[in-house]
Simulated scan of single mutants.
Amino acid sequence: MTINNKLISKGFILAGVMNSSVLLFSRGFTNKTINAYDPDVMSNFGMLMILIWGLAYISIAYRFKNVKWLVAVFAIEKLIYGCVWLQWMMTNDIGNVYKEDKMAGIFYSIYGLNDWLFCVFFLYVFIRLLKQQ
């Protein structure tokens, strides 16, 4: 299956928008429940960096063909977040998060799935760009 460049550009924009949803789930970085359950990764600073990654995805949406190695970096970044999420899910009780705050529970339920999805997307784009050399 081949995805056209226009759809790939939309994928980069969607990845950025999904990262920007951290603003919604964190209620503008005021949701302390998210911070409390993973203070290393999901501190307010960590969530700000997630937002910055999202802006980086959007910034190359129409120029991704020129920065194939940056696309590889995006895939690695998403792989790392996906692995961190899996580890978190295996060592925490998501039910406790939902009891404290539904938005935080939804956030912890989906953020890693989002990271795995876009890891595959970025990897696909990178491999496609390598083959075009």
Rank of each mutant, 00 (worst) to 15 (best):
R27E: 13
M42E: 06
M90P: 00
R27L: 05
G105A: 11
G82L: 03
E77Y: 11
K10I: 14
V120K: 04
C83P: 01
L55R: 02
L113M: 10
L86Y: 13
D101P: 07
F107H: 06
A104M: 06
L79Y: 12
L117Y: 13
L79V: 04
L113Y: 10
M47A: 14
L70F: 11
M103R: 11
W88C: 04
M49H: 03
A75L: 00
Y111A: 00
I13G: 01
F45A: 13
F12V: 03
N5C: 03
L70E: 00
A61H: 00
F118P: 05
L129Q: 12
M49C: 13
M47V: 05
Q87S: 12
V125D: 10
G105M: 07
G11Q: 05
N4Y: 08
V125M: 08
L86K: 11
F122T: 01
W88P: 02
N66M: 06
L23I: 13
S21Y: 02
K131R: 15
R63T: 14
A61P: 01
F118A: 13
V22T: 14
M90N: 11
A36H: 13
D115K: 07
A104P: 04
I34H: 01
N114L: 12
L70I: 12
E100T: 05
M103F: 14
Y81M: 12
I110L: 13
L129H: 08
I13F: 08
G105S: 09
A56F: 15
W53P: 00
G46Y: 07
